[in-house]
C-alpha cells in the first residue's frame, strides 16, 4: 500500500521481489480493491504527514475498506511501523502507539524475542528465537489498557518483545517505553500482524543482517499451506 508520505514501500518491495523473487504490486491509496493479492503490506513512513495522529488519516483512504475486508476474510496483512499505526487506527489491531517515552526518534538495531509462532508471519520461527532488526520511529510506545494487555497475552497475540541479545526481556532493551516490552502483536486469528521494527531493512547481509526475511518467508509458507 502506498499512501502520500509512505517511504518504506520500495524497501519492502526489494525484500519481497529482489531477495525472495516473489511478484510485487504497488497499490495506490486511491484504489478500491486489493483483488488478486495474497499478502498486503502497509509499509512505514509518515502517511499524510502524521497529521492529527500517526495513521489517523490513512485509515480513511479509499483502499483501506478493501484492506479491512481482505483482513476480515483471513487475508495476510503486515503493518510495519507507520503501517502498524494505521492498522490500530483502523481497529484491525488493538492498542495505540504513543510518543516514545524518551521523546527521541530512535533509529538503531534492536533484538526481538519471538513470543509465538502461530501468526502467519512467525510460522517459521521457534518461540524464544531472537531476531536482530532495526527500528526507526518517534512514536512506537505501545499502549493498551491492562485488560487489553492481559487479553493479548492470554490469547497469544503478543508476537514480538524487545529483548537483550540473550533473549531476556529487560527494561534496558525497551527502546521506546512500550507496555510489557511489546514490539509487535497479531489479531486473534494471527493473519494480521503489526510491528514497529523494520524487517525489510534486515533482508540481506549487505544491510547488516537478514533476520527480517523470516517474517516474509513465514508468510509465503502460510500461503502455500492455506489458500486464501
Amino acid at each position: 500500500m502506498v499512501f502520500p508520505g509512505t517511504w518504506s514501500d520500495r524497501d519492502c518491495a526489494h525484500a519481497v521481489l529482489d531477495v525472495l523473487q516473489e511478484p510485487v504490486r504497488y497499490v495506490d491509496h486511491r484504489e478500491q480493491n486489493v483483488d488478486g493479492l495474497d499478502l498486503v503490506i502497509l509499509p512505514g513512513g509518515f502517511s499524510y504527514g502524521d497529521y492529527l495522529r500517526c495513521g489517523a488519516i490513512a485509515r480513511f483512504a479509499p483502499v483501506m475498506e478493501a484492506v479491512a475486508d481482505f483482513a476480515n476474510r483471513g487475508g495476510l496483512v503486515l503493518g510495519i511501523c507507520n503501517g502498524f499505526q494505521i492498522l490500530q487506527e483502523a481497529r484491525l489491531l488493538p492498542g495505540a502507539l504513543l510518543r516514545n517515552a524518551s521523546c527521541e526518534f530512535r533509529c538503531e538495531w534492536v533484538q526481538l524475542r519471538v513470543e509465538q509462532s502461530n501468526s502467519a508471519f512467525t510460522l517459521d520461527c521457534r518461540p524464544g528465537q531472537v531476531l536482530r532488526i532495526p527500528i526507526s520511529h518517534g512514536e512506537g510506545n505501545f499502549f493498551a489498557d491492562p485488560q487489553t494487555l492481559d487479553a493479548l497475552e492470554r490469547n497469544g497475540q503478543v508476537v514480538f518483545r524487545y529483548c537483550a541479545p540473550d533473549g531476556r526481556v529487560t527494561a534496558d532493551s525497551n527502546p521506546n517505553g512500550s507496555a510489557r516490552n511489546i514490539a509487535g502483536i497479531s489479531n486473534a486469528h494471527g493473519n494480521v500482524v503489526g510491528l514497529m521494527p523494520h524487517p525489510e531493512r534486515a533482508c540481506e547481509p549487505l544491510l547488516g543482517g537478514d533476520d527480517g526475511l523470516i517474517l516474509f518467508r513465514s508468510a509465503i509458507h502460510a500461503l502455500t499451506r492455506v489458500a486464501v
Binding site: 504513543l98 510518543r99 517515552a101 524518551s102 499502549f143 489498557d145
Partner: peptide, 14 residues
C-alpha cells in the same frame, strides 16, 4: 487530551 492514565512524555518534557 491524553487520558489521565496515559503517560505524556511531551508534557513531562515541557
Amino acid at each position: 487530551t491524553l487520558k489521565p492514565v496515559v503517560n505524556d512524555p511531551a508534557g513531562l518534557t515541557i
